[in-house]
Structure formats: C-alpha cells, structure tokens
Amino acid sequence: MNEKLFKYKLYVKNNNDVSFTPETLAKIQTIISHYPDGQHKSALIPILHIAQEELGGSLNVDIMDYVAGLLNITPIEVYEVATFYSQFYIDPVGKYVIEVCQTGPCAICGGEDIMNYLEEKLKIKVGETTGDKLFSLKAVECLGACGSAPVMQVNTEFHEFLDMQKIDEIIAKLRNESELTKPEELTWKERLS
C-alpha cells in the first residue's frame, strides 16, 4: 500500500505496545460511569484527549486501536472521530503545539502579523514542526477569546493580547521549561474527573 496516497497515515500500524497506567484506567472508568449503561461510546472524545496527552502528543493507529479495545467499539469508530475533530493530531507534533487564531476578530487586531512573526522566529512554516521537535505551529479558527485578540494557545493554555514582545517571552519561557519533565499545569485527566 502506497503511504503517500493517504493524507493521514491511518493504515500504517506499527504494532507498538501502548497502554495506560492503572491510575489512568481507573480515571477512565470514572468517566465512562458518567454516561448511562450501554452508552460508554460517549466517553470516546474525553478518552482520546487523555490518550493524546499521555501517549506522546498525537494519535496513531496503535493508540486508536487500543482505545477502541478499551471501549469495546470498532476501530473505524475511533478513526472517524479522531480525523473529524481538529484538536486530535494524527501526524506527530512537537512538545509544544502553538495554535494561532486566524479568524476575523483576531485578524483585524493583528493575528496575521503574529503568525508571520512566529514563522520567522521559529523558522518554520504553518503546519510544520521545528527540527528539535519542540514546537509545532498551526493556524486554527476562532478560539473564543475575541475580546483579548490576538490570541494563541500553547497545548490548550491560552495566551492573550499578544504582541511581538510577548511572543518572545513565551517562546523563551517554553524553551527553558522544556528541560523540566512536566509543565506545571493540570492535565486532561485531572480536569476531566
């Protein structure tokens, strides 16, 4: 099968072992218990958030098949959801995913300049990842913070009222923080239950 034919490399299974920790599995059971009996599929999106965060920042076939097994649903049901929602990444991403809002209200307050500046600063184009696998740059649509435009989010932490100086500070901070093992923020697991 020719890999290049597929936009998402959905059909490439590496047969890597993936599994959640027992602690995560317990959390997942709590999340499933939020839904009526027999409706455990509802927990799919929250679990994919946790999977993406705990298992390397993006999803791949191995992870999605594993989640399908957990919820006792067919793999295709996971693939179709993972490819529909823009917060799930099928291709590998850097440690910090920078998503810059490009929609109207941000654009008229300088969102496009912010994007150009980030491209220049990180020396990558939109959609690419830096060589050291630290930053991925993405253009996204409205983040719902138009009153504090321009806005971007770094791994779902919002940064508002951006200007060039602020970006310099954020990037510098992230470069330093990347030496730490875990950023000081709540994980999906902690927030979801």
Binding site: H34, Q39, K41, S42, A43, L44, I45, P46, L48, H49, E77, V81, F84, Y85, S86, Q87, F88, V140, E141, C142, L192
Partner: peptide
C-alpha cells in the same frame, strides 16, 4: 463533557451526536 474543536458541534443535533461519541 468535552468536545475537541469543531464549530459545527454548536448546532444542537451535531452536539448530541458528538456527545454520543
């Protein structure tokens, strides 16, 4: 319950679909 970045899920029936996973 959390979504994952889809404007269309603000439409009520799409939201219900999304809530059903």
């Amino acid at each position: 319950h959390t979504g994952a970045g889809a404007y269309i899920c603000g439409e009520e029936t799409a939201l219900l679909e999304s809530l059903e996973g």
